[in-house]
Nucleic acid binder design. Sequence first.
DNA 1: AAGCCCTTACGTAGTTTCCCCAATGGATGG
DNA 2: CCATCCATTGGGGAAACTACGTAAGGGCTT
Lengths: 207, 207
Amino acid sequence: MSQSIQQVYIVDDDEAIRDSMSMLLETIDLPHQCFSSATEFLEIYDGTQRGCLVVDIRMPVMNGLELQKNLNEQECLLPIIFMTGHGDIPMAVEAMRAGALDFMRKPVREQDLLDRIQQALQHESGEFDMHEKMAGIRSRIATLTPKEHEIFDRVAQGQANKVIAAELGVSERTVEVHRAQVMKKLDVRTLADLVRLKLTGEAQLSP
Amino acid sequence: MSQSIQQVYIVDDDEAIRDSMSMLLETIDLPHQCFSSATEFLEIYDGTQRGCLVVDIRMPVMNGLELQKNLNEQECLLPIIFMTGHGDIPMAVEAMRAGALDFMRKPVREQDLLDRIQQALQHESGEFDMHEKMAGIRSRIATLTPKEHEIFDRVAQGQANKVIAAELGVSERTVEVHRAQVMKKLDVRTLADLVRLKLTGEAQLSP
DNA sequence: AAGCCCTTACGTAGTTTCCCCAATGGATGG
DNA sequence: CCATCCATTGGGGAAACTACGTAAGGGCTT
């Protein structure tokens, strides 16, 4: 599933920073891409990107926090590492509350940054896999017809076929047919799998 | 289950701060308790406390971050709001990474602090309920005998009784007996409930 | 010896799964 | 407009799985 490759997306209006960052990442052969503004990154961002962001806080037009907010609204999963020359505590707190992975002051020790980036990539990998899994489950659930979905919910809650049939005012046979169809569409063989699948599909990624 | 009452635990070595905080909380009739050091709080802390902490970062002997670390190791659920006169960004970042709810600079606007405290109490309430629920489930699971636990796992994974019997080298009847005992001990009637209970018991509180 | 755990059997009843079949109604496409 | 697909509904019956009551033997610890 992980067709796309993890990259480090550097967003900083200071060309010198971008260049030095770029060189640093090349020393360890880490794919990366530079952007001179938040908007420039947002233009290419479409939700398919993998990896992490290294973002300067203070930038013209749209600053780092605004970029973060924008991405969060898009349910972006890319971890963000902030870099700042002049950030203050409220800014750092806001960034962290909004899910930033770190908030580092320039100048940054190169090894510290690389460590954080590796950590971010690893974290994103896990989140991405989980997100893929959940998206797959949800898309399979989406193929259920309304009746199938209704029966899916009730079966997963543990209702017996006869109960479902009585409450929906149909024959047990009908419930059986739908139930079997649900199992087939969701590609599960046991009720236990069905319940697990439902719970996984309803789960939330940690905020 | 919520026998104990939520309180605000104030930890600050500055008596003036403690007093003013205490007065502030009295204006809205919020139960609270003051401590002049981290160790003083740790002495009374036994895991039964409910509410939240308002902690000064800079304190002699044990500072706020060390207190947080200590409490985290005890799997303490109390949200922590840090107060600081002289904190720096790395400190704020570390505190937030370690799960702090906020990191506020003194002097703090009273209303801001009260808002955060209310938010913290609400958050703790939810976490506590979830923790209680999970603890209840785990204690019930703990009453299972080894064989029952084994069969519990397999049943929750969707294995049929005959499969379990074959793999364990016992008769189906034996599995049935254990299975019924498991359902009784865990107080569930359907397989769906059993699976849900197992997943809930295995869940982690969001770090 | 008492108590708990693990084990098993017989029989009955209820539930689910899967095979065959078929009819209705709505949507889609030629 | 008709043909076709598909969702929905339903029947019968066989096979498998599960539930439960009753009863009972062996092993283990206290």
